[in-house]
Design a protein around this nucleic acid. Structure first.
Length: 201
DNA sequence: GTATGGATCTTCT
DNA sequence: GAAGATCCATACA
């Protein structure tokens, strides 16, 4: 068995986000080990599903074990793993991978960057793996995107506040592989200030 | 090495 | 009309 059973995704989003660290995400001839995830649930404001079911968020509310791919800031595709039962809005954002297969292909897609930077960001890993919006709402069980269980479970992962959001920032729903830096992005200098990348006018 | 601001466009109010 | 789960180039120490 090289893929998860669908029931694996039929669990609390925090459990899935935790267990997803160390697993392998594969698409085509490229693959990488997940080293950073973030959990999102419709009960908190940072989740897209928080607003309810719309044309955009429909997938999150759908059956578990599917991929929710959406466009962020107009230019990046981000991939999420839908989990929890059908009718519950919950998903896990894949934030960072360590390339393991098809590294040459990744380099071609990503350009001349250090290997450490091939997949160290949610928008970068989708580009490296060739995952686009056309893969939104595709199956992770027997679909084009494959998810493989961890060869050996990561013993320690730590939870920390999520990044790049402005709501529900106090929830420690980010999971990073122990001993790995994951996405090397500095936190906002002062807690409670505006998030990076946007300056209010 | 670290900090700041712009690019870009879809979705929702 | 405004906000957003980002990335990259540039400026400065």
């Amino acid at each position: 068995m090289t893929a998860f059973d669908r029931s694996w995704f039929h669990r609390p989003v925090l459990d899935v986000a935790h267990d997803l660290v160390g697993c392998t995400l594969a698409h085509g001839e490229t693959a990488g080990v997940i080293v950073e995830t973030e959990a999102y649930h419709y009960t908190e404001a940072a989740c897209h599903a928080y607003v309810g079911i719309t044309e955009r968020t429909r997938v999150i509310w759908g059956p578990p074990g599917r991929a929710y791919v959406y466009r962020s800031y107009g230019i990046h595709a981000l991939v999420n793993v839908v989990c929890e039962p059908d009718g519950v809005g919950a998903a896990v954002l894949i934030r960072a991978l360590v390339p393991t297969e098809g590294v040459e292909v990744m380099r071609m897609r990503r350009g001349p960057v250090p290997d450490a930077q091939l997949c160290n960001g949610p928008g970068k890993l989708t580009q490296a793996l060739g995952i686009g919006l056309e893969l939104n709402d595709t199956d992770l069980v027997g679909g084009p995107i494959e998810l493989r269980p961890a060869a050996e479970p990561f013993e320690v992962v730590r939870s920390a506040p999520r990044i790049g959001i402005s709501k529900a920032v106090d929830l420690d729903w980010r999971f990073t592989a122990a001993g790995h830096r994951g996405v090397s992005r500095p936190y906002p200098k002062t807690a409670g200030s505006s998030p990076p990348g946007r300056t209010p006018t």
